[in-house]
Structure formats: structure tokens, C-alpha cells
Amino acid sequence: MKNTSYVILYDGTFYDLINIIEYLLKEKIKPINIKSQEEYIPNLFDITFNPKNNSNKLFNYLFSYKNIFKNIYYAFLTKFENKEMQIFYFIINFFKYKEKVVYYKNLNCVINVLKMTKYVSNENHKFKGFTRFRMVNNNFLVAIINPENNILELLSQHFSRRLKNELWIIYDENHQLISIYNKTNYIIYKGIIENLSFIEEDWEKLWKSFYNKIAIEERKNLKCQINHMPKKYWKYIIEMEGNENEKSN
């Protein structure tokens, strides 16, 4: 591998990232960083390079290792800045150790990719519970979410099975992504939804009173509550609305 001072740019998609890593491996180029064009802030000293490759060979090869592919894909969905380089090193080690690479927990890139994967699947799991829909015009459901990682695709898979016969929209406010489901497929695209400030009084009131009644006063434990349901998520969890500034003890 040639050490270079290149900053490699890709188009922000997982597909392109893997294709570009394939190119780098073939040309034996070790860059100093890999960034998506959109996130990259130009810098006088960087030599940027935007290779083109559509072979998909590496992509298909990785795809045949289900567990490895899942780990890399989930790591790609995280918010972490150095994720691309960690994936790059992880793939290099994958060629060395094949699917056993995940057991080499003394390698930083392995530890990091596994951590990122866990981080994404944990957050995805949390949002399977914390997402709150509102019914609009007795016709379709709308939810706003604010996850740290880009879990909308994973979450949409979940709800397309669960709420199969409903029309729904999930808006990821942090990543400005919208997922729209039409009872058959969901499509995710970039965009902003504004003015979603309506509420659904009856059901929300009923839910809030259930929520308050189910707690046992004698067992009050706000610390435990916050551990399981961090405050950063409270904004759209309707039973917590208005509690964000409440002091915990």
C-alpha cells in the first residue's frame, strides 16, 4: 500500500463508498481520509481526488458475507466522522482474515466498526419504540424523529411490515430525510417538512393519562427512566412533551 496524502471524495452513498474502496485497494492507494463530497469542507492543503468506479465487484463480494456486509453497512449509517477510514481498514483486514475478522478485537478498526454497528442497531431498536405517529385527516400517519444516526431505512423496513395497511410518513428532522409508504413500498428522499405542529387531542390525552397512571409513585426513579429513555429523544415522544426541562434528581 502506498501512503498518499489524498483526501478521497465519494458521492455520499454506500454504493459509491464501496466502489471507491475497491478502486483504492486495486491501485494500492492509502489515502489520509475519505469524505463524502457534501460533508467535505475544502482546505488549502488537501489534495482531493474523486476516482470513478462502477464495477460493484467488491460490493457483490461483501454482500455474499452477510454478517460482514451488515457490519459495514450499519457502520456507514453512523454519524461518526472517521467512519469511512475505519471501514477502509476493516475491509483490508477482512481480506486477510475473512469472516473471522470480527473476532480480532485487538485491532482498532474492528473494535470501531463493531462499536458503530452496535450504536446504530441500538438506536434503531430504540426508535422502533420511541417513534410516535399522529393520524392526519383520518387518513395517514405522520411521525417526526430525531435520531443521531441515519436509521430511517432500517426503521422504514420495520414499519412497512408492522403497519402494512396504513399510509405513513416518517420525517427524520436531523438528517432531513423523508420516508413515504404507500401500503406497498417506501421511498426515502431528501427534504424538509415544516409546520407539522398539529396535535391529535383525544388519543394523545388518553395516552398521556395512561402513561401517568401506570407509574408507581412509591417506586419513583427518574434516573432509571432517563437511562432507558435519554432526554435527547423526548422532543417527539408525546408523553414527554413539555417535560424536557424538568429537573431530575
Binding site: 419504540g129 420511541f130 408492522r162 402513561y211 417506586r219 415522544i237
Partner: peptide
């Protein structure tokens, strides 16, 4: 599984909220 209706179950279970006593709802 959800066969043309509403809902399915998750093998690992899903917590939807946590009450002020810290218990899962």
C-alpha cells in the same frame, strides 16, 4: 407475522416508553 392486518411481534421485544418509576412500558 403480519398477514394482511395490523401489527407483528418482535422476537426481542420492544420498549415503547419508560414511566417515572423507570419501568418499561
Amino acid at each position: 407475522k403480519n398477514i394482511d392486518g395490523i401489527g407483528n411481534t418482535s422476537y426481542s421485544g420492544i420498549c415503547h416508553s419508560f414511566s417515572s418509576d423507570g419501568r418499561c412500558i
